[in-house]
Design a protein around this nucleic acid. Sequence first.
DNA 1: CTGTTAGCGCTTTCAT
DNA 2: ATGAAAGCGCTAACAG
Lengths: 340, 340
Amino acid sequence: MRATIRDVAQRAGVGLGTVSRVLNNSPLVSPETRQRVLEVIDELQYTPNPIARSLSLGKTLTIAVIAPFFTRPSVVERLRGIEAALANSGYNLVVFNIESAERRDACLREIPRKERSDGVLLISLPPRAEEISTIKLSGVPLVLIDTYAPGLPYVVIDNKVGGYIATRHLLELGHQRIAYVSDPLEDPFSFGFTSSYDRYQGYRKALREAGIIFHENYHVSGLHGRYEARRLAHALLSQPEPPTAIFAASDTQAMGVLEAARDQGVDIPGELSVIGFDDIDVAEYLGLTTIRQPLFESGVRGVEALLNLINAAEDWTATLVCERLSVELVVRKTTAVPAA
Amino acid sequence: MRATIRDVAQRAGVGLGTVSRVLNNSPLVSPETRQRVLEVIDELQYTPNPIARSLSLGKTLTIAVIAPFFTRPSVVERLRGIEAALANSGYNLVVFNIESAERRDACLREIPRKERSDGVLLISLPPRAEEISTIKLSGVPLVLIDTYAPGLPYVVIDNKVGGYIATRHLLELGHQRIAYVSDPLEDPFSFGFTSSYDRYQGYRKALREAGIIFHENYHVSGLHGRYEARRLAHALLSQPEPPTAIFAASDTQAMGVLEAARDQGVDIPGELSVIGFDDIDVAEYLGLTTIRQPLFESGVRGVEALLNLINAAEDWTATLVCERLSVELVVRKTTAVPAA
DNA sequence: CTGTTAGCGCTTTCAT
DNA sequence: ATGAAAGCGCTAACAG
């Protein structure tokens, strides 16, 4: 069996508490004693048991992250940021991947509990009203990333501005018939609910300002993913008066649009302009014009905000942290002036 | 403060132990008592504290996974498999992302410890000899995924066969000048060390059987990633007698090759055939011919093997589980007969 | 400064 | 079948 704090104390000829003190860098221990204890620790290859530590401290020393995990490259990038920010914090990162509504509900019910984690990060999944109150009551700090909900701290980008910028870019090129391909805007379990919706708002705003009347059938939505987006784009391109530009709610969906265009022999950007959102890794490879958002950084910021809440003396729901990161238009090769 | 087992016992008018028994489905409790306890549990919204449970049990109820996490899509896919397989197991998944040699060493030193996790999954990173013995001594079951090491259980694909099949495909199309772009074959910290090397072996074998002499300068290697692969491919294509086909050790690297070809105006597959490895999501989108390996499944299998080891009565190093999943050639549009 | 002691919440003998 | 008690390894409060 591996060494415990008791073994160390015995071997060093000191009391249990003293060992604990050197372990926790308490100043209340003489240099000589500390030295001796340290030696024994080294000799015995002793490492404190985090579980026992947790139980005693009343902390779990873990951060939970709930995310529609690996289905989206953008989420993966946020996770990288989270992991990096947490790497030297002493907290462990435990992950929960959501790929079904049931699991979403189960996780939201079970994870935000004091005995499970000291804090939770919720990516892209907006909690429902009743879940919000449970969360607040639980006393476990939680911060949302890429989504928001009343009374909960969050880190987001300005999706509305993003949608606006994307649409403006198309408008400025001279496009009039601009379509929007997105996830379902109503379904609360659709992973990007709030962000897709906000981008839609920006899109509408840009159109309105340009004096362009929005046509219902220029907005199509379906489950996130390339295949579905491809299907939707096909429908869009088959309309009697097809759009000359398509704004996709994510790069992944933009890829589906690109595929559809290829299927139908539609030249890009000659006959159709396509702009995505996220600037994931492959976007550059594909030459996809897109709106870049700081994915990695959103993870880092989320962790920072969470850690602050955890260490704050007061009730974490008292101060509402809301961080809004900025976006940037990245023009590449899938957008151009419309065909004459 | 939230309810503890003691509160439940008191309220139900039973002993501490009894509550614990109903919690753990012990048959040693009368139906009526059980019923009553269950009611109180429900009433108090009691949930057992996993930390306390762990300490008492001497188990951590967590599985650690150490991986060169998000740099490779293939790793992400394996992680999805791991998460899925673990979802209803009662184990938590804590992840460690390796992006530097220091962190690799630190994790390999600190994670495989009884007080940290009940089992660890190590993806793509082969441990060094001295690390192997520490691991074995630690008593914590560990299984390797996508790599192997003496005396440690692992789940891999047959990389040698994969490399062989890929090369055969090119050979059968009529190619003679076939290059291989890979990660460094020697550097133990190169994330895909064993797999790239094994694929190389298969490549060499296929060439040998076909009676083709291998040219040193047809094998180039560099850090994993698209950019580096692109650079390497440029060099390859600039040789006096450039290859007519390139086998890339991963789809990501194949993308770099494709990019280089595009840069130089080399037509694919007309002037150059390219085959990748992994069949990651974008491969289909790109029409990339590749070798498909069951990434998700490798994660699932890894978990299964690990769970078996954890639950096995005997010393986990006693029985060596070695699982080898099969690969498959997926012909798409980046390979063809060489130009005449 | 340092040793001792009382829990943290749960599981598990050991009696009964 | 069930209650009482010991103990998992550690921290923190309490005496010195």
